[in-house]
Amino acid sequence: MSRGKKIVLGIVGFVAVLTIVAVGIGAKVYMDLSGSVQKTYESVERQLDTKRKEEQGKVIAEKKPFSVLLLGIDTGDLGRTEVGRSDTMMVAAVNPNLKKTLITSIARDTYVDIVGKGTKDKINHAYAFGGAGMSMDTVEKYLDIPIDHYIAINMKGLKELVDAVGGITVSNDQKFTQDSYTFEYGKIHLDGDQALSFSRMRHEDPRGDYGRQERQRKIVEGVAKKLLTFDGVTRYKEVLDAMQENVKTDMSFDDMKKIAADYRGAFTTIQQDQLQGEGFMQDGISYQRVSETELNRVQTELKKTLDVNN
């Protein structure tokens, strides 16, 4: 058995909650949603100064652009119960004024300073060292932007969410076999188990981990589309059941309601980007090194979306 089906998908839980809140189909839905979101809430310890903490607490309340670190954790299935690593990392920058959301993927092997650990390592190790808080602090320093919130989802959550929405359809640009499944070229339908396998293949892909990350983003898009096209969110209970046991976030129910009310236009346009690096070996371990030019490019795009001037 391989290391595990290392996956994706904070953004799915994010879109799921926002979709159901926005539809607002009655008191029963409201109470179910409130209870489920409360089960997903988990605060974090961060290394922020007093001013930054105050700013972070006002962002959503004042309808300002905000960012969410989306973490896919490699636990929750195949009997894995340890803390795990964030084998998928995405930053979602949400701007209601520009009516735009920018989702930027970060390769798990990116070589960075781990804030709070005093060492350089793969960026996905920050979660294993210090949970979501250390991951947020590390990404905030590396990208030079404020990271306001996080959403983490484990492997089991991905599988159950895909099944909860009745499966998804994605466009596949390379025929391959993974975990006994053969994925044909073109548009294909995936259930939860198939989505896990589809998301984890990288050895047959000439793009390596970057190809894997592109497939993960396709799954994100596929689930989001199914959620946003539900007639009255008819399967909302299945979605909530999948979320409440497998998703963690520091966004409260009030935050979710505020986003649904004030930020709906920000999801009209969803753009995707990828922080690109080059592989290198150090002490027998492979890493990704991002050039200063590429890092500056990604930082600039994120700062534009978040209206950050520094």
Rank of each mutant, 00 (worst) to 15 (best):
M243Y: 05
L70Q: 04
P146S: 06
N310I: 14
L227M: 06
N172V: 00
D87H: 02
D254Y: 03
M31G: 08
G186K: 07
M31E: 13
E301Q: 15
K257H: 02
M31K: 14
G72E: 02
I145T: 06
A128L: 13
L71T: 00
N309S: 12
Q38D: 15
T249S: 11
E140H: 08
Y127D: 09
R264A: 12
G10F: 02
L228E: 10
N309G: 04
Y142N: 10
D77P: 01
E160Q: 12
T110G: 04
N310H: 14
E140T: 08
A242K: 01
S291M: 03
Y111C: 03
D137E: 08
K63Q: 09
Y181R: 08
E214M: 14
N124I: 09
G166R: 11
A242N: 00
Q194N: 07
K63L: 01
K58V: 01
S34P: 07
E140K: 11
D179N: 12
Q47F: 14
F267G: 10
D273F: 06
S34R: 15
K6F: 05
Q244M: 15
V233P: 07
G10E: 03
K28C: 09
Q299T: 15
T138H: 04
V223H: 01
N246S: 14
S105A: 11
A93E: 05
T169S: 10
Q288E: 09
I7A: 07
T110A: 01
A107G: 04
K99F: 12
N310Q: 15
R3M: 13
I259G: 06
N246Q: 07
I106A: 00
I60V: 09
Y30C: 05
R235L: 10
L18T: 06
V29R: 09
I20F: 03
M89I: 13
T249K: 02
V139R: 02
E45F: 10
V290E: 00
S135Q: 07
G222L: 01
G84V: 07
G84N: 06
V15H: 09
E245W: 12
R52F: 05
G157V: 03
K58T: 07
T75N: 05
F129P: 03
D209V: 03
M281Q: 13
A107N: 04
D113E: 14
K122L: 11
F183D: 05
S199Y: 05
D205W: 07
A152F: 02
I219E: 06
F267M: 13
V233Q: 08
K5F: 11
V12T: 15
A92I: 00
M281P: 05
V162G: 02
G277W: 01
G192Y: 00
I114C: 05
F14K: 06
G284R: 10
R215M: 01
M89R: 01
Y150L: 05
K120R: 15
H203G: 02
Q282S: 12
F253L: 14
L240P: 00
V29L: 10
K28H: 10
N154V: 04
K175L: 06
V298H: 04
K248S: 11
Q274T: 14
D109W: 04
L102I: 08
Q276N: 13
E140Y: 08
M281K: 13
F198Y: 15
A128K: 11
F230H: 07
L190H: 09
Y150G: 03
A16M: 04
H149N: 04
G57S: 14
L295G: 08
K218Q: 13
L70D: 03
K122N: 11
R212E: 04
K5N: 11
G133W: 11
D283T: 12
I168P: 02
